[in-house]
Design a protein around this nucleic acid. Sequence first.
DNA 1: ATACTTTATGCAACAATGATGCAAATATAA
DNA 2: TTATATTTGCATCATTGTTGCATAAAGTAT
Lengths: 143, 143
Amino acid sequence: MESSHDYINDQMLADHGLRKTAFRKELLSVFLSHTGKAITNEMIEEALGDHDRITLYRTLKSFEDRGIIHIAMDGNAHARYALCGQSCGADHHHDAHAHFHCDQCGNTTCLEDMPERFEKYVPQGYQVNEIQVTFSGVCTQCA
Amino acid sequence: MESSHDYINDQMLADHGLRKTAFRKELLSVFLSHTGKAITNEMIEEALGDHDRITLYRTLKSFEDRGIIHIAMDGNAHARYALCGQSCGADHHHDAHAHFHCDQCGNTTCLEDMPERFEKYVPQGYQVNEIQVTFSGVCTQCA
DNA sequence: ATACTTTATGCAACAATGATGCAAATATAA
DNA sequence: TTATATTTGCATCATTGTTGCATAAAGTAT
């Protein structure tokens, strides 16, 4: 099961201190083919074909721990997963993740280029480590 | 099972077009005794004592539909619920919900007074209906 | 390449949560 | 108070999150 992402896969796994296994490469390929989108567990399972549910669950967790992916919310309490930007690592995720969820088509898009730092709006005394911003509404294509 | 919240309860349920049942009043009391906090399903169940799981689940949903509560994320894909401000109704929730989740004590606090409208940062063409902002880190008391 | 150590996988089993159908109970309106 | 519509509580099932453990595979040293 060779893929065009193989080199990138190996590199990414190595960079984040994870062993290169067949399953991880496949999962990473799924994410790479959805760059800029936050995808649901369901979408991942469909893309993977035959696979073990628990392994997926654990691999998602290790990807998150190592800073390869991050969790995004679609505004409906359902988790989605998306590739992290360059600056995420094992010790800390990039501090601001912004996403747009379209209530019509159901797509969740990453808005990587949020220009503002939001933490300045938090009351004094709070130490902000991470920020999740989720907009929902209607996307360009559906409007 | 009388409570000091009874009057407020009745009023709120009426305002949002819901029948006044014992269960709804109890649930509303739980929320009223946690004003400013976003609470988990678990916390609610504990506060309620003996109750039916499905009824709770459905009541939470109707509260959300009618704009009494809103869902908040704690940054870990676990849903939390919190009382809405005045401006929420059946057709639309108040458009910006900001919360702070403390990774140490686990509390999720509502930050109702966010001074900024964030939707201006969304790329052209997107129609924003709702915004969820979740900060996580360490709160004042834990720091 | 081989043997060894560590990590990952796949399976069983279970817990927690989300969801639906339906009869009995309750709230509201007439 | 009676009639109507909604809500509750229960049974039941689906989906998702979690752990333990034996086997398999990846990395490492010989």
